[in-house]
Nucleic acid binder design. Structure first.
Length: 157
DNA sequence: GCCAACGTTGGC
DNA sequence: GCCAACGTTGGC
């Protein structure tokens, strides 16, 4: 069982949206490192910290979990969609995704500045290398962050 | 809106 | 295979 952090811009898809939808295919990932993590490292049931990027402030806002094995991202085959990849084909798909299921909102979102100043979280990929949108989190970091957040409440706001 | 970091593309 | 140009991410 591993732990992850996945980013989303709340204007595009927020934790509230996931709470409403329940389960959502995490489409549109076009970074090989992120893809490889989803394809090779994720297991159904892995816990995921849901992070709002490009928010004011950016913050870890809740929890989700991996809800499927990796499978081809259908948006890469849609010529009219913004995630279309002309170099990919259904025979040899380039981009994979996993489904993500809502778990809960944090009692208190943890803003990025607070994450950055916490010595226990200084090694997080989020702090060290902020651009990766799907990233591994150690169990220690995960537990610490959930504790900072005061745990989760199950209902969406 | 700016721009640093950094990943990808493509000419050679 | 190198590397310059370019595009994207995402904090500020």
């Amino acid at each position: 069982m591993r732990h992850w952090l996945m980013k989303s811009e709340p204007d595009a898809y927020s934790l509230d949206d996931l709470a409403r939808d329940g389960v959502e295919p995490w489409d549109g990932i076009r970074n090989y490192q992120a893809r490889n993590l989803m394809r090779d490292e994720m297991t159904v049931g892995d816990r995921v910290i849901f992070y709002h990027s490009n928010a004011k402030p950016p913050a870890a806002v809740g929890l989700a979990e991996v809800a499927s094995e990796a499978y081809p991202d259908p948006t890469q085959f849609d010529p009219d969609g913004k995630y279309f990849d002309p170099k990919s084909s259904p025979d040899d798909p380039r981009w994979l995704l996993v489904d993500v299921r809502y778990v809960g909102h944090f009692e208190r979102p943890v803003p990025l500045p607070e994450i950055k100043e916490d010595p226990a979280l200084s090694e997080m990929v989020l702090v060290q290398r902020s651009r990766l949108s799907v990233q591994p989190v150690t169990e220690t970091e995960f537990d610490h962050l959930v504790e900072l957040a005061g745990g989760i409440r199950s209902a969406a706001s």
